[in-house]
C-alpha cells in the first residue's frame, strides 16, 4: 500500500515543479521594468477607490456552511458504499436514514430562504 503512495508522493513533489519552471523562464528572458503606474490595480480602467477588502455578504458563508455539512456526511458514506456487498438490507436502510436526517437540514435551509440569492 505504501508503494502506491510512493508514486503519489513523488508526483506531489514533482507536479509543482513543471508550472514553477514556466514561471522561472520568463524571469530570465522577459523584460522587467515595473513602474508605479504600470503596477496599479486594474479595476475597469479607472483609478481604484477605497479599500480592497469590501464587506461581503453573509450569503457566501451560508453556502460554504451547507457545503461543509454535506461534505462531511458524504465522506461518512463512502466506506458504507465500499462495504455494500457485506451489508444486509437493514444496514443499507441505516445509511438511507443517515441521508434522510441530512435532507431535513436541506429542507430547513430551503424553507428559511437561506439558499436564495437575494
Amino acid at each position: 500500500m505504501l508503494n502506491d503512495w510512493l508514486f503519489i508522493g513523488v508526483f506531489l513533489i514533482l507536479a509543482p515543479i513543471f508550472p514553477a519552471l514556466a514561471l522561472v523562464i520568463p524571469r530570465l528572458i522577459a523584460p522587467r521594468k515595473p513602474n508605479s503606474l504600470k503596477s496599479q490595480t486594474y479595476e475597469c480602467g479607472i483609478e481604484t477607490v477605497g479599500d480592497t477588502w469590501v464587506q461581503f455578504r453573509v450569503q457566501y458563508y451560508i453556502f460554504a456552511l451547507v457545503f461543509l455539512i454535506f461534505d462531511v456526511e458524504m465522506v461518512f458514506l463512502f466506506p458504507w458504499a465500499v462495504a455494500f456487498d457485506q451489508l444486509p438490507l437493514f444496514a443499507v436502510l441505516e445509511g438511507v436514514l443517515f441521508i434522510l436526517i441530512l435532507v431535513a437540514g436541506l429542507v430547513y435551509a430551503w424553507r428559511k430562504g437561506a439558499l436564495e440569492w437575494t
Binding site: 456552511l65 461543509l68 455539512i69 461534505d71 462531511v72 465522506v75 461518512f76
Partner: peptide
C-alpha cells in the same frame, strides 16, 4: 471519523 464530524459542527 467521529472527531471529523465534531470538528465540522464546532467550526460551523
Amino acid at each position: 471519523v467521529m472527531v471529523f464530524a465534531v470538528a465540522a459542527a464546532e467550526v460551523a
